[in-house]
């Protein structure tokens, strides 16, 4: 096994072991953090399939996350207020809906977006995502821009998602399955064509591959996985708002992929972890400085509101100076 494989295994074992340990030792907050991180990692891994391996820079991935979450929230809403059948709380129904809606959305929008390249592709994927955003904002029944509280989590036989540890377990197992799935796809014959089209599209076409179809299939797979992640995210937050599918969320997902390292299996997971943890650490340490300034100098400055500034600077430094993101750091030592 290569060093990269070992590091991937070690990281995944750590992600499996640490959060429950924190939970049992009375730090439930860290389990929450890990669950959020794990769910976003699934979305990042799915984005990496098209962004990293396919070279298709989609700036609208948050739409899939949001659609997936609404696929949980809307049936749950009607179950509570309209008394429709108990099927509306069934987890398999939720996930089936999430995957069906997002893959259909990916198929229709992808068929159009993939006719464009480069900056146009970025803009048009973002435009479609914003369309969904404004659509949800306009639907008053589901809370409009105030969002929608999910009153009941998805129900699976033998699984209770109200228990944080079980929800984390489901998210973790899903992440591992998705990582294996994407790894399998990119190394298959299909994946070879997808990566070749990223490297040299015209050559791949003249070899005899209709790269448009390959990219569209990858786009749909990626969207469906992100939709699944969205269904998990809805279960985790038990509240959904259109903000979840805003372009800023799309940008954050992109950042996780780039920060961790594109076209690697572990990269997006590391990226999500770094993103989520850094956010926490920065807010905590700025709060600490706040207290220090207040205690010593009597100054009252709300520094922690400005955590985005050092956060942005750190991200810029990593993107500028570490080629290949965090995975680039690991691989460099391998040479």
């Amino acid at each position: 096994m290569t060093r990269k494989t070992w590091i991937t295994l070690a990281a995944m074992v750590a992600l499996a072991v640490l959060p429950p340990v924190f939970y049992w030792t009375g730090n439930a907050f860290y389990l929450d953090l890990a669950t959020r991180l794990t769910i976003l990692a699934i979305a990042a891994v799915s984005l990496n399939l098209i962004l990293g391996y396919g070279g298709l820079i989609s700036f609208g991935h948050a739409a899939y996350l949001g659609l997936g979450a609404y696929a949980v929230g809307i049936p749950a809403y009607h179950w509570l207020y309209d008394g429709i059948g108990d099927w509306a709380t069934n987890g398999f129904v939720h996930i089936g809906l999430a995957v069906a809606i997002t893959s259909t959305f990916a198929l229709i929008t992808g068929a159009i977006c993939l006719r464009t390249r480069g900056v146009y592709f970025i803009m048009i994927t973002m435009a479609f995502a914003q369309m969904i955003y404004y659509l949800i904002v306009s639907i008053e029944t589901y809370g409009g821009d105030d969002g929608l509280v999910i009153d009941t989590r998805s129900e699976f036989p033998g699984l209770n998602l109200d228990k944080p540890l079980q929800l984390f377990g489901l998210a973790y197992v899903s992440l591992v399955v998705v990582m294996l799935l994407v790894n399998m796809i990119v190394n298959s014959r299909f994946g070879m064509v997808l990566q070749a089209a990223k490297g040299n599209n015209e050559r791949t076409v003249t070899l005899g591959f209709n790269t448009y179809i390959f990219q569209l299939v990858a786009y749909v797979i990626s969207g469906a996985i992100a939709g699944y992640a969205g269904a998990l995210l809805g279960n985790f937050t038990t509240f959904i708002s259109p903000e979840m599918m805003d372009w800023r969320t799309s940008g954050e997902l992109m950042f996780m992929v780039i920060l961790g390292g594109t076209a690697t299996i572990l990269g997006p997971v590391l990226g999500s972890a770094a993103f989520i943890l850094l956010e926490e650490i920065l807010v905590d340490s700025l709060t600490w400085v706040e207290h220090l300034l207040d205690g010593i100098l009597g100054m009252k400055i709300e520094l922690s509101n400005y955590w985005h500034l050092p956060f942005g600077l750190l991200l810029i430094i990593i993107v500028l100076y570490v080629r290949g993101g965090l995975m680039g750091l690991i691989n460099r030592k391998e040479d």
Partner: peptide, 10 residues
């Protein structure tokens, strides 16, 4: 057979 997703091409 380019639409094969499972077996490793390499």
């Amino acid at each position: 057979h380019a639409f094969r997703f499972i077996a490793a091409a390499r």
